[in-house]
Design a protein around this nucleic acid. Structure first.
Length: 615
DNA sequence: GAGTTTGAAACT
DNA sequence: CAGTTTCAAACTC
């Protein structure tokens, strides 16, 4: 344990001592164990975590030398490896630009709390901490002079609020605070800097903004200025469990950003679809400005059934690589939409209040085959991309966010009602799993439709050239090994078709295989069979998913309007889709007369087999 | 204003 | 990685 004299003798205290109880030669997080202050010295005791690769050396002293203008180089007395310096630099000083500006009433900085009012409606003004045990130096801060210098004002204006000592976090000294035993002042500048250094060393990103800027969606630009989007999202995401991300406990909510994929929150309501609710929530406590950032949140939906639903949704649209390649885009709204769908249907099942324990989730995940262990964000991302095509689909007649205003309208006048109850009035009869089943069926249907189109194209083309060739090729196909047919069906996500093929009763004799055959020969003669298949089916994937999801949105729109839905009506989605695509009731008639009419899903399959039967 | 709740971060 | 502890703000009464 050593003590080093302060270089500038006029700068108190005279010595600063940093003691590491354990240390490693490499960078390891440290913890401030204690801070002892005497009249002429300060001792900061930190512990460093041991590393399995580098057994700790105990009682390794590290010394910090403080000068009036900052920290001198850290001397690591026995470390053979260089200590990893934080990527960011701290230049906290009593006269830091941020400090001087933000404290001023004339500050041009729109400090986060500028618009925050206490519950009694009186402006809180610049935050004043009330720390009692941390000496206003402990724990990580997320906003400081460095970030101020580095990021522009519009970025930092979005509330880099921290739960810990706000004064320290903002690079300011405590002034007029109610804190106890405060070390965040001029007299303890050395301590302050040491703490900062340690925090940075433990986490080089600690002083970087938690809320990052990100592009807003096009519709965000709309609307009045007051509701202009709060650009950005929480970098690390929140983990709220009880607040539904609608209270200021939630860092995202507090920072005026919607929850994002980074979040691991439960029962999240902090996404755009709940804008009205958020507005209401904010109006109630008058503590926040509403934003329109369209970053949806994939906060976990607190329902085991929902987990299943998510998986089903994903499964329905699994195999969308083709679409991914085509779309490539990232429409933010789609996340919101899906979440809204999931959330509301989850609510409808009455399970929204039930939280799926991590244990349960884990178990569920383990139950899945390895190839189905889809991370929520992964499936969500896929769905997002799929639906994003909807807005670019020329045939779409829907608004960008058709249900949003409907939901919101329903909320008008009952803004204080829990979102769950309001929406449940619309969705309460919906059965999530059945809707998902409908989606799965539709995915198959659309794939078939697309396959049929391809088939027709190929057929027409061939007939123009040689009317006899097609029949011959179809005959050829029927003689191909069943594995090839199965592969084609699988790749088109034609579950039932694949099954039929396996069972030796190909419901669509020759069609898929023929398409593959033809396309193979036309485009990809020299490549492998799998490659050929994949390329040929790309467009089919895209059309399949686009069609289904577009239709599903229509369906939901109608569903929301209808208040007399029966549970089984969720299965009407395929029919809705069929009617939309073909504009006929013939399918319904055919299905109702079918021996398997009692099973709507099977009927749907049967109908498709009939509809696309070889002519 | 006191007590409770909440969730981030630290810690084990 | 999961559970626990610490902490300070948010919230409730």
């Amino acid at each position: 344990m050593k003590q080093l004299e302060i270089e500038n003798g006029d700068f108190l205290p005279k010595s600063v001592e940093l003691v590491t109880l354990t240390s490693t030669p490499c960078y390891q997080p440290k913890r401030i164990k204690s801070v002892e202050k005497t009249s002429d010295s300060v001792k900061i005791t930190v512990t460093e975590r041991s590393s399995s690769h580098f057994p700790p050396k105990k009682n390794l002293a590290r010394q910090l030398v403080f000068t009036e203008f900052g920290l001198s180089p850290i001397i690591s007395t026995s470390s053979p490896l260089p200590v990893e310096k934080p990527s960011s630099e701290m230049h906290l000083s009593p006269r830091s630009p941020f400090s001087s500006i933000s404290k001023s009433s004339e500050s041009p900085i729109p400090v986060p709390w500028a618009n925050i009012k206490a519950n009694n409606g009186t402006p809180k003004g610049p935050k004043q901490c009330g720390c009692k045990q941390s000496k206003c130096l402990k724990l990580v801060v997320h906003f400081n002079a460095f970030s101020f210098q580095r990021f522009n004002l519009s970025e930092i204006s979005h509330a880099q609020i921290d739960r810990y000592c706000d004064c320290f976090a903002s690079g300011e000294y405590c002034n007029g605070c109610t804190c106890a035993d405060c070390c965040n002042n001029v007299e303890n500048e050395d301590l302050r800097k040491a703490a900062t250094e340690i925090i940075l060393e433990r986490n080089p990103r600690a002083f970087k903004p938690k809320i990052s800027s990100s592009p807003c969606s096009p519709q965000d630009i709309e609307g009045d200025k007051i509701d202009s989007p709060q650009v950005g999202r929480h970098e690390r995401g929140c983990h709220c469990k009880k607040s539904e991300c609608l209270k200021r406990y939630c860092e995202c909510f507090q920072a005026n950003v919607f929850c994002s994929q980074n979040c691991k929150c439960v029962d999240c309501k902090n996404f755009e679809a709940c804008k009205e609710l958020i507005t209401a929530s904010c109006k109630e406590d008058s503590t926040s400005i509403i934003c329109k950032n369209s970053e949806g949140c994939y906060g976990r939906i607190a329902s085991s059934q929902m987990d299943n639903a998510s998986r089903k949704l994903y499964k329905s649209f699994k195999g969308s690589e083709g679409l991914m390649a085509i779309t490539g885009g990232d429409c933010i709204d789609t996340k919101i939409y899906i979440q809204r769908v999931i959330t509301t249907t989850s609510d409808a099942t009455g399970l929204s209040g039930q939280r799926l324990s991590q244990e349960s989730r884990k178990r569920k995940l383990q139950e899945l085959p390895s190839n189905e262990k889809i991370s929520p964000s992964q499936s969500f991302s896929d769905l997002q991309k799929v639906i994003s095509q909807r807005s670019s689909c020329p045939s779409s007649t829907l608004s960008v966010d058709p249900t949003c205003h409907i939901i919101n309208s329903a909320m008008v006048g009952s803004l204080r009602d829990p979102y769950r109850l309001t929406v449940a009035n619309v969705y309460h009869l919906l059965d999530t799993s059945k809707v998902c089943s409908g989606l799965a069926v539709l995915a198959e249907a659309a794939a078939l439709a697309q396959a049929a189109n391809l088939f027709a194209e190929v057929k027409d083309g061939e007939e123009n050239k040689n009317g006899d060739i097609l029949g011959a090729k179809e005959d050829d196909y029927q003689e191909r090994p069943a594995q090839v047919q199965k592969k084609a069906a699988d790749d088109l996500n034609l579950g039932f078709a694949a099954k039929d093929v396996q069972e030796g009763r190909a419901s669509l004799p020759g069609m898929v295989g023929l398409i593959c055959n033809e396309k193979n020969k036309q485009l990809m003669e020299p490549t492998s069979g799998d490659q050929i298949l994949n390329r040929n089916l790309k467009n089919a994937y895209a059309e399949q998913e686009r069609s289904v999801l577009s239709s599903f949105l229509d369906f939901l729109e109608k569903l929301i309007i209808s208040k007399n839905m029966k549970v089984d009506d969720a299965l009407l989605f395929p029919f809705h889709y069929l009617l939309r695509v073909y504009g006929t009731n013939q399918c319904v008639h055919d299905l109702s007369n079918h021996p398997k009419a009692h099973d709507k899903e099977k009927c749907w399959h049967v109908y498709l087999c009939w509809h696309y039967r070889p002519q």
